[in-house]
Design a protein around this nucleic acid. Structure first.
Length: 1101
RNA sequence: GAGCGAUUAGCUCAGUUGGCUAGAGCAUCUGGUUUACACCCAGGAGGUCGCGGGUUCGAAUCCCUCAUCGCUCACCA
């Protein structure tokens, strides 16, 4: 073994070995209780950051722990297509400004997909470097075929239940991204902008957006407030000769002139009349605006805040969320006039500023009003917050536009919950249904409040986005704008029967016909399918497929469609190799590598085209597709995504498919009809993310083995187990998974939500590029190793609180990992054969010797206790405490005491056993070093397949007795240090006791205390001039020439402490309310302490 | 403006339903290269638990006020 652990060599090798072992694959047929964690899929084009690293560390720890506890664990990986973010990156990557620069939408999608595919391996490899025990065989992608199918299915279901609607609504429009944004995608910024008070006839209204005051008609006043009409000579010179303002403002002259600061405070004002707001209602007038004269009418509503502004406002319903709600409430929907277009320019209604960008129009319209004498006040220091697009960081304009929405408050009938709403279901998840406990627990609990605050205020979710990179809305329109949903089609895969060529291990060719038995297979399939509504039979063009199809078509009375691309291929060149030996697809690969037969990539490309054609086959029933197993294998890979060579090879090896019906797929296809046009929009990226926990397990096929096994947790039978993520996406993602999960699967998608905090630098500051305090986890892994990075991320952090981390902290845990390495090295040296120097590797079994020393009993007991504590902590998701316990047990007890003791009184059996148990205990936190040490000393097996340590050696008295030994050694060391004794110098010491365990430990104390001699006896006499002290009521002396004054001072200090303690204890006991009210056990304890302290004090005197 | 969180050693943080002398890591100080480990060992110093009240036999812990910092949400025509 190397003197220092070299993580760089180890980690890559170990991860490879894990992958090669096949043990990372979860077994859906297992009898073990399932434990499932869906990995929050990182952006496929992203880079691993410390947030990901924290997430991976926490989830990996849970995964490994649960696996060692005997669960069938599935931690399911994947990536996210991250719609808006990725689309922007792709555009930038190609050096373009907008997607419109591509020749077509299809071209853009090809480039975007290529980019995503290329980036995919990067993030995946980075995830692996953290040591993540992920089931890569089940890797999913939010934008692959199965996920697209799930998206289409739930869209269709929701639409049919009336929970998805298309409508004109006010939405947040990002001018920069040219797309709608959900409320949660907005970021707010404080800005200072001029606030204008504008005349509207005699009325005055205030606004920060004068450019929108060009085409309004309703003017609102407060019904219960008094309004005064005032005039003055100055006012007579303007267009109107009087002003109407709310009386409250007029009564407060200081505020009045401060607000309407264009009016002359010195002028002579007269009040013409006072009127209730309600009595102004119905007034109609024509007034000048910056864009020319306009007709207005007065209405009243209590929305007006009498303390603010002039007491009147007009509403710009098309460009303000509040105004929109108000206009709808007041039935003013005729006044939704578009003043700003989707490029952010003013429309024609804006007259003189039409065509100008909003910001410019704002200044210009302000100036125009001033010139026209319409401006009566302006506040240049007005501060407010404006929404910005979180992606393009540019202005967000509220706009009215046709969009798709999920109706969260609409009632529908759910198969389990009955009449309900999506919102009610989301609330019930965490609050519990009437009379029931909540199905979902959020850790930390305080986020329940956050969750409810969000859910309770939840509005319909706008799910359409005007971008290309995403799941396209599965809706088509005809010329009358009627809606047509995508159609679902079932494809039944049938494998043709035995053919002539497939005999005696020979390889069959394109033209080999069916055998008699093969024909019989075809007849059998007819029988199976007779009861099903089959519309069409599809086949390639090879002889046996055609023949099978013809027999079936005749039997079922349906037509046959041939698709050339789905035909078989020529493998004659692979003579000499049997199909079952190598598999069909592997055979093609072999041809490719050896320059024979059809090129593998060309083969796959051909089948892709065929698959698309297959999806477009029209049928008034199910489609049967007759094929062979190799084509089927490839199509399956194409459908499931992640089409790598390894996956092809893996699939092809599963080549023992029976003849007959082998699979059924459902697909969505465009609805049938003339001149149908698909909706241009795509779905919000969170729509597909919201399906993640179950779309990755086979849903909507609820009979899928994965869904049955892993979407049925052992805790409360809901979906998966734990959803662990950052709290910042509690609403975006977690809440929506809860919503879709309950809706679609009748279960909540997980029983526990664990929210970790934001990773910050070591001073708790946000990491940012501009501050330069960012830490790249990959660099840290390179420098220190993955295990220390994991420890640094999970120890010393609390759920939901920020996770401060710096190189120093990681370095500290690197030292721990190295300590573990060296402990292993020491044990290895102890167990090495003295002659050969080699160490026999064997997995230690539980020590059976009945001749255990106190030290052995102590370490075994402590091991047991710590294992139990770690288990308790991990079960409660308290990883920090678990890590801390392990850290201190390994370093402070096993290394500092047991290893040192074993140099005096070796017990190899206990030593090896304890180390093995420690490695198991530490494995979930530090997978690499523990695996490496395991291999060095014990076995080539995977340590993760061992059982997690259980408490089986608890021995309280041994622990107490050894604790006395530790205290004695500590006291001796302290006295030595106080006397500045060189560690090399040995001295004599004595302990005045006849206690057997102290006597038994004498040799150990002698070595650890670095003593020349040790007398343990009740009758031991303290030599003159030696230092004394008390430990656990035992008198100890160390024969060190001492300085009288210092020794007296030390004893005095000891005495003072004891006296203080005694006084405190006595005080407590003399308080009758303490002895009466405190728990009796506590009082007894206090008494015992007092006795002990008094006895100690006596000995000192 | 509202809500949430934080405030404990120089720094970063633990501290369970209120109960033993309030702990850890890093930093610091003293002494040490004794064949597992200087990525180390041994020992020490360092805290009025943000302030002020209250409840209690007993408060870092529960309640109230205030202060400071952080986060989130909502906005005023």
């Amino acid at each position: 073994m190397e003197k220092a652990y070299n993580h760089l060599n180890s980690e890559a090798e170990i991860y490879k070995a894990w992958e090669a072992s096949g043990a990372m694959r979860a077994d859906e047929t297992s009898d073990k209780p399932p434990f499932t964690i869906p990995l929050p899929p990182p952006n496929v084009t992203g880079e691993l950051h410390l947030g990901h690293a924290a997430m991976l560390a926490i989830q990996d720890i849970l995964t490994r722990y649960k696996k060692m506890q005997g669960h069938e664990v599935l931690w399911l990986p994947g990536t996210d297509h991250a719609a808006i973010a990725t689309e922007n990156v792709v555009i930038k990557h190609h050096g373009k400004k907008s997607r419109e620069e591509w020749p077509s939408r299809e071209d853009f999608m090809v480039d975007a997909k290529a980019f995503a595919d290329e980036k995919h391996d990067n993030i995946v490899n980075q995830m692996k470097r953290m040591g993540s025990w992920l089931d890569w065989s089940r890797e999913a992608y939010t934008f692959d075929e199965p996920r697209n199918f799930a998206v289409n299915r739930i869209f269709k279901d929701l639409y049919k239940d009336g929970l998805i609607e298309r409508g004109y609504r006010l939405i947040n429009w990002s001018v920069g991204a040219q797309s709608v944004l959900s409320d949660d995608e907005l970021e707010y910024e404080d800005v200072k902008e001029p606030f204008y008070y504008i005349k509207c006839g005699k009325f005055i209204m205030g606004t920060v957006r004068p450019e929108t005051k060009c085409a309004d008609s309703p003017l609102i006043v407060h019904p219960d407030e008094d309004y005064v009409e005032i005039t003055s000579d100055e006012l007579r010179m303007t267009n109107d000769d009087s002003l109407i303002v709310i009386k409250r403002l007029w009564d407060d002259k200081e505020k009045f002139f401060k607000t309407l600061n264009f009016l002359d405070p010195e002028a002579d004002y007269k009040v013409l009349s006072t009127t209730k707001g309600a009595d102004l209602v119905g007034q109609k007038f024509t007034a000048e605006t910056y864009a020319g004269p306009r007709d207005f009418f007065v209405i009243a509503d209590t929305v007006i805040d009498p303390e603010k502004g002039s007491g009147a406002m007009t509403i710009s319903a098309s460009h303000s969320a509040d105004d929109y709600d108000l206009a709808k409430r007041l039935g003013l929907t005729d006044f939704f006039i578009q003043k700003i277009d989707f490029e952010g320019n003013m429309t024609d209604v804006a007259g003189p500023v039409a065509g100008m960008f909003v910001k410019k129009a704002r200044n210009v319209s302000g100036k125009l009003m001033e010139e026209k004498g319409l401006l009566v006040g302006k506040d240049d220091n007005y501060e407010h917050r404006v929404p910005l697009c979180y992606r393009s960081n540019c202005v967000v304009e509220p706009m009215i536009s046709p969009q798709w929405f999920i109706m969260v408050e609409k009632e529908y009938t759910h198969p389990v919950d009955g009449k309900t709403t999506l919102k009610a279901q989301m609330q019930a998840a965490v609050r519990g249904f009437e009379g029931e406990d909540p199905a979902v627990q959020i850790i930390p609990e305080r986020f329940n409040k956050e969750y409810f605050r969000w859910i309770d205020n939840l509005q319909d979710w706008c799910i359409s986005r005007q971008i290309w990179w995403g799941h396209r809305i599965p809706v088509w329109y005809d010329e009358q704008q009627n809606i047509h949903l995508a159609e679902e089609q079932e494809i039944i895969f049938a494998r043709h029967g035995e053919s002539e060529g497939n005999r005696d291990g020979k390889v069959q060719g394109q033209d080999d016909p069916l055998t008699e038995k093969g024909r019989a297979h075809a007849e059998d399939m007819v029988d199976v399918l007779k009861s099903e509504n089959v519309g069409v039979i599809v086949t390639g063009t090879s002889a046996r497929n055609t023949e099978t199809a013809d027999i079936m078509a005749a039997g079922l009375g349906v037509e046959v469609v041939h698709i050339e691309e789905l035909s078989s291929y020529d493998t004659k060149e692979v003579a000499g190799m049997t199909i079952d030996d190598i598999g069909r697809v592997a055979a093609i690969k072999y041809c490719k590598e050896n320059g024979k037969g059809e090129d593998f990539d060309a083969f796959v490309a051909r089948l892709k085209v065929g698959l698309e054609k297959l999806k477009k086959v029209r049928s008034n029933g199910k489609i049967v597709f007759v094929t062979n197993r190799s084509i089927y294998s490839v199509l399956q890979v194409l459908r499931d995504g992640g089409a790598t060579d390894e996956i092809f090879e893996k699939r092809s090896k599963n080549s023992h498919l029976p003849h007959g019906i082998i699979d059924r797929w459902s697909i969505f296809q465009a609805p049938e009809g003339e001149n149908l046009r698909q909706d241009e929009d795509t779905l919000d990226t969170w729509f597909s993310s919201a399906l993640w926990p179950f779309s990755t397990l086979g849903w909507p096929d609820e009979n899928a083995p994965d869904f049955q096994k892993f979407y049925n947790n052992a805790v409360n039978g809901q979906g998966t187990d734990v959803l662990e993520t950052g709290w910042d996406i509690l609403f975006f993602w977690v809440a929506r998974m809860i919503m879709f999960g309950r809706y679609a699967t009748n279960k909540f998608p997980f029983h526990t939500v664990y929210l970790h905090g934001m990773v910050t630098d070591e001073h708790g500051k946000k990491m940012s590029k501009s501050k330069g305090n960012g830490i790249n986890p990959i660099e840290m892994i390179e420098e220190f190793g993955a295990d220390p990075v994991r420890l640094a991320l999970v120890i010393g952090s609390t759920p939901g609180q920020k996770i401060p981390i710096g190189a120093n902290k990681i370095k500290g845990y690197r030292n721990f990992v190295n300590k573990l390495w060296n402990a292993t090295r020491f044990v290895g040296m102890q167990s090495a054969d003295p002659e050969t120097g080699l160490c026999k590797r064997a997995i230690p079994t539980r020590p059976v010797s009945d001749n255990l020393s106190l030290t052995d009993q102590w370490i075994l007991s402590r091991l047991s206790t710590v294992a139990a504590e770690v288990k308790t902590s991990l079960e409660a998701y308290d990883i920090s405490t678990a890590g801390d316990k392990i850290y201190h047990f390994v370093w402070g007890e096993f290394c500092d005491w047991y290893l040192e003791a074993s140099k005096v009184e070796p017990n190899l059996e206990v030593l090896r056993y304890t180390l093995a148990e420690i490695l198991k205990l530490t494995h979930p936190l530090c997978p690499f070093i523990t695996q490496q040490c395991w291999q060095e000393l014990f076995s080539d097996s995977l340590i993760i397949e061992e059982s997690f340590p259980a408490a089986s050696f608890v021995n309280e008295s041994a622990v107490a007795q050894f604790s006395t030994v530790q205290n004695i050694v500590g006291a001796i060391r302290t006295m030595r240090a106080e006397k500045n004794l060189n560690p090399k110098d040995k001295v004599a010491a004595g302990i005045k006791t006849d206690e057997a365990h102290v006597k038994a430990a004498a040799e150990l104390i002698k070595v650890l205390g670095n003593l020349s001699a040790l007398e343990v006896s009740a009758s031991a006499k303290t030599p003159d001039n030696s230092a004394t002290t008390l430990v656990d009521n035992l008198e100890i002396f160390v024969d060190i020439p001492f300085d009288e004054a210092a020794e007296t001072a030390r004893i005095a200090k000891l005495k003072a402490e004891l006296e203080k303690k005694i006084a405190g204890l006595k005080g407590r006991l003399s308080n009758p309310s303490y002895t009466e009210k405190a728990p009796p056990a506590l009082v007894a304890q206090t008494k015992a302490q007092l006795e002990q302290a008094e006895s100690e004090l006596q000995k000192l005197n």
